[in-house]
Design a protein around this nucleic acid. Structure first.
Lengths: 110, 110
DNA sequence: ACAATTTGTTCTACATTGCAGTACAAATAG
DNA sequence: CTATTTGTACTGCAATGTAGAACAAATTGT
């Protein structure tokens, strides 16, 4: 739960949104799936977990391991939840972009 | 005009938006001012120029040096314009975020 | 019990971006 | 031709992005 910086990157932001989009079912596989569908780009699982770890180090997400579901086999899922501090950062960066867009003299970019 | 990657970072995105917001008057000083007002964070001039250079390397912005204005003294301004390729990338990442938000099961984050 | 299979996470390594300080360049004024 | 003003380029390191392979924990079948 360090606090190395106050900045979140582009991919980190997408990961946070992906977690939110999965509600109570946010873990590695579902988060990845949401990302790939939303971005139409491949997301390697290693990249995702690295980012999830860093987000947790920064205190932006919280995680806990669930009970292993009796489906076929496989390790227990590690669930993720977005913390309030992250919501604030998301709001901030969205607001900053909006402010710049509202100054846009040509009138919107799409 | 290299093409090292297809990714744009968070700050790069803000810089692109800031350039757009300045219309025909986008150069170091005005871009920086727009950024600081929109983000409420200090932006050192070195950081900005580094990012502008990288954006130009990636072919996302175009620059040209203007005539020196007869105001007091000082070097000629280097003007920047956002290219179409950048507009596309901006659209893409905005769309990706929007897609994730629209799946948001809790109902919006602010 | 234990090897094979399945599901899922951690580790290692390097590329790209973010960020700041300092040096440098080009213009005007006196 | 020096001082001042305005503005840009250079250097170096920290933080993020990205991928591949190794590792871990569960179930199934024999």
């Amino acid at each position: 739960m360090k606090k190395p910086s106050n900045y979140i990157g582009e991919f980190e932001e997408l990961v946070l949104l992906a977690i939110l989009s999965q509600g109570d079912n946010a873990y590695g596989v579902t988060i990845r799936q949401a990302l790939e569908e939303a971005t139409a780009r491949s997301v390697t699982i290693g990249s995702l977990y690295t980012t999830l770890s860093r987000l947790e180090e920064k205190g932006l997400v919280q995680s806990w391991v669930g009970e292993p579901t009796a489906e076929r086999g496989g390790r227990a899922k590690k669930h993720y939840r977005v913390k309030g501090s992250a919501q604030s950062l998301l709001k901030e960066v969205r607001a900053a972009r909006q402010r710049l867009l509202s100054l846009e003299p040509v009138g919107g970019i799409g």
